[in-house]
Design a protein around this nucleic acid. Sequence first.
DNA 1: AGATCAACGTTTAGACCTAAACATACATCG
DNA 2: CGATGTATGTTTAGGTCTAAACGTTGATCT
Lengths: 190, 190
Amino acid sequence: MEDTQPPESPGEIAAAWRRERPGTPTESIPVVTPVFRLAKLFEDDRQRVLRRAGIDRATLDLLSTLRRSGSPYTLTTRELGGRTLVTAGAISQRVARAEREGLVSRAPDPRGGRGILISLTDAGHALIERSVEEVLGREMYLVEGLEESERDALAALLAKLTGQVRERAATPLPPAAPRRADERPGERPG
Amino acid sequence: MEDTQPPESPGEIAAAWRRERPGTPTESIPVVTPVFRLAKLFEDDRQRVLRRAGIDRATLDLLSTLRRSGSPYTLTTRELGGRTLVTAGAISQRVARAEREGLVSRAPDPRGGRGILISLTDAGHALIERSVEEVLGREMYLVEGLEESERDALAALLAKLTGQVRERAATPLPPAAPRRADERPGERPG
DNA sequence: AGATCAACGTTTAGACCTAAACATACATCG
DNA sequence: CGATGTATGTTTAGGTCTAAACGTTGATCT
């Protein structure tokens, strides 16, 4: 046997929970599970493309953000942090790695501030120029399995959901679910 | 200043690329970017819930899969691998951690095989029982920002896209974009 | 000025993952 | 039976990330 069955579909996962624990709220599964899986599929595929281009995800993120910001391809560490989904510590490390490879340079902000300006070097500019086209071209291909109208509809729904989730995730967690005293979760059929 | 501006919207990112590099294929951005962001939002929020429940993402994954498989809550390492998105090495480590915490037990497969059976212990069963309800309840809340009909439409599109991407990502990478001879990728400015 | 505060960036410790090298245990074939 | 091959699991080396401690540099107040 070469490989086992593919992962359960979201529908199967939800059905399994309902079978095992009637009453379990499974309505979110058909949305959340595919989001995780798609993120991983895109991520892994992107990594294949990037490896060939001699760059990794972290560096792509950094250089793209600088490149996209337009001439003079310079942002402060803080601005980079705001546009990326990682912590300040990670930014620091990413910049350090990219600097070691000669892709970016660092200099104190001339405008008084305590900020540090990160700029694309020529090598960094060349590398991102080469990589962006490939990454976006490949993603285009991956996404073209959907009709344009479907992509538009999907993009709209994703945008709306992102907004909603951002709002709701920002609110403090509700109190932990009440735990029924007669619920004997430890019970196990022999 | 407390925090900088939120990350650019997918539309802004695409517009920036078109401004900076006319002709860049940006059609995938409104789909791919929100998928990454939603995955991170869900992931981070889930982690907050899990921390309170005294469990982490890796262990949740492991225990959920066992629990969902139904009595006797036992699977081989290989089966676990097939249902999870991580490598065999990661499974091994996850099981080792969970075993150290008394949440699962390991035993050689009695049916002749060279496989190892991983089973939920009573403690593991109790923990997952407690956690699942909270995680899914919370996710339900996060996703309820969309109408039910929107969620259904979104789920259908995500399912279709997942299938398409899985197919397309499996195919070998097309040849690298032609690279101009004067572009020397390995070269580094002194 | 001097003290205190706030913003910013870096460093460090620890967690988890992947890829690849290593075992092991069956299975098959001469 | 002994040699190869194949499927499974585990271990190890290395990498990136987060959280939190830490250090620095301006800004504010008296």
